[in-house]
């Protein structure tokens, strides 16, 4: 096994583990907002790492075989991961705001300043 393969395996394992933690959190947590913590953070992080494995693979193939399609693969995978991180953060904020507006209260909450502020 070469260094590159070890790197790819590590990235894939980290990605799949954090993705499964995100889905586990989606199933286990008691209410919407805590579920959202699990899904936005863990699945974004896991997907970034699986894409990083593809980037490492593409770059290593590009440097060993000097074929430009692998460079293309690496760049596109990196761009997809960047878009994914950005869009997940924005859509999580949008859903949380909409849910609070439509009257879903956080369960088990010790304090709710947004409810007090009445925006």
């Amino acid at each position: 096994m070469t260094v590159v393969e070890i790197l790819i395996y590590t990235c894939l394992v980290i990605g799949v583990v954090f993705n499964s933690l995100g889905v586990l959190g989606l199933l286990r947590f008691p209410d919407l907002y805590t579920r959202m913590h699990a899904t936005t953070k863990a699945t974004t992080f896991g997907s970034i790492f699986t894409s990083l494995a593809v980037v490492v693979y593409g770059l290593s193939m590009f440097f060993s075989q000097n074929a430009s399609q692998y460079l293309n693969l690496a760049i596109h995978a990196f761009l997809a991961a960047a878009f994914l991180a950005f869009t997940n953060a924005v859509s999580a904020h949008a859903i949380a705001r909409a849910a609070h507006k439509s009257g879903i209260k956080p369960m088990l909450a010790v304090v709710d300043r947004l409810e007090e502020a009445k925006l």
Partner: peptide, 21 residues
């Protein structure tokens, strides 16, 4: 750090949520 934190919370369910300003 956020992801290690979320991993800990998912496994133990040790939460104390709330909305702060």
């Amino acid at each position: 750090k956020a992801n290690l934190d979320v991993a800990y919370r998912v496994i133990t369910l040790n939460i104390r949520p709330g909305i702060i300003r």
